[in-house]
């Protein structure tokens, strides 16, 4: 097990969103302010790590034929717990993320990591994988949130800084509304994926 390598894979070379292209829906839907991106990212990170640990621990007990059903039960259980805890103790995050918390159940990052990593590796390695992949997802959400919030609303840190209003960089009237709409999500994500491909190809060529 190599923590540094797993971290590099999660954040860059095997980034769940930009390279594996998993979890697109939530990525585009919720990245309209920094607090949304952070709340969603951390929620997925926690659920991914916990479900990776449990699935890895149970990997020898669960018969192959029903593994997907068993994974879904475990994941759905954790998602519901996080949903209830958010509603009880982090009202504002629960309000702004709304339906996207229950939808983490079908976030393909979690099932993909359960199937491709946790079901084949030890508990500790799976936990580290959950944390690294979760960090990669969170990082992309944060970058997207900052870009879309800045271009769309002209603020930074909406929902967290400056009493929830965010720090205003330019007047709200000049914001490009489309950047906070779904089309802005596609544009931002497309540009980020292109940037990632370019950077990876360049570093490959550099090695040759």
């Amino acid at each position: 097990m190599n923590f540094g390598r797993q971290l590099k894979e999660g954040l860059v070379t095997q980034n769940p969103v930009l390279v594996q292209l998993l979890g697109m829906c939530s990525t585009m839907a919720i990245t309209t302010s920094l607090s949304n991106g952070l709340g969603m990212g951390v929620s997925v990170l926690i659920i991914l790590t916990l479900s990776n640990i449990i699935i890895s621990a149970l990997r020898k007990i669960i018969p192959d034929k029903i593994r997907i059903a068993a994974y879904i039960v475990v994941i759905a259980g954790f998602v519901t717990m996080v949903d209830l805890l958010l509603q009880a103790y982090f009202q504002s995050i629960a309000n702004s993320l709304g339906v996207f918390i229950p939808l983490i159940v079908v976030n393909c990052i979690i099932l993909a990591r359960a199937e491709s990593f946790a079901s084949k590796n030890g508990v500790l390695a799976s936990a580290v994988d959950g944390i690294c992949q979760g960090l990669g997802y969170t990082l992309v959400l944060l970058v997207m949130s900052v870009i879309r919030e800045f271009l769309g609303s002209g603020t930074f840190g909406g929902g967290i800084l400056n009493g929830g209003d965010g720090i205003r960089i330019f007047p709200a009237d000049y914001g490009a509304l489309m950047m906070v709409l779904p089309v802005g999500g596609f544009l931002t994500l497309g540009c980020l994926i292109a940037l990632m491909q370019w950077a990876q190809n360049r570093s490959k060529e550099g090695k040759k």
Binding site: I62, V74, A76, T80, M81, L84, Q87
Partner: peptide
């Protein structure tokens, strides 16, 4: 196996719901 996993999950969910 599926029943056991579901039962444990349901039990834990009940517990979290009871608290929250």
């Amino acid at each position: 196996t599926l029943f056991a996993i579901s039962a444990v999950t349901a039990l834990l969910l009940g517990l979290v719901n009871y608290v929250t």
